[in-house]
């Protein structure tokens, strides 16, 4: 099992969700996050005074997937979230040691 974590632009969320649904991936967890990468922040102006916003709003998508599906899921996210511009985000994959479905107590891949 693997955990796919994607940091994407907020408005790309619907497309990412649709792409994952199309390929049969069930379930995802999203959270509103802030951060910066190469995009850096931006500058706002209030009554002539500059205000630098360091942390940009992003959405974090987390999907637990079976080993075999990892590449397909990553590709789908990258394609759905990509615009070719700086600030599109990042995707990374980490191993998952164990998983349990709370309702049934199923473990491992069955719990996904």
């Amino acid at each position: 099992m693997r955990l796919v974590t994607a940091i994407i632009k907020p408005f790309a969320l619907d497309e990412v969700k649709a792409a994952l649904e199309t390929m049969g991936q069930q379930g995802m967890t999203v959270s509103e996050v802030r951060g910066y990468g190469r995009q850096k922040g931006h500058t706002e102006v209030y009554r002539g005074a500059d205000y630098v916003v360091d942390f940009v709003a992003k959405v974090k998508v987390e999907v637990a997937v079976d080993d075999l599906a990892v590449d397909k899921v990553v590709d789908a996210i990258v394609q759905a979230a990509g615009s070719g511009k700086i600030g599109d985000g990042k995707v990374w994959v980490t191993p998952v040691e164990a998983a349990v479905r709370v309702r049934t107590g199923e473990r491992g891949s069955d719990a996904l």
Binding site: L13, V30, S31, V53, D54, F55, A57, V59
Partner: peptide, 14 residues
């Protein structure tokens, strides 16, 4: 944190 909170995650999210 000092960053805009204009982003709204759609109601279905989560």
């Amino acid at each position: 944190i000092g960053a805009p909170s204009t982003t709204k995650v759609p109601a279905t999210a989560g």
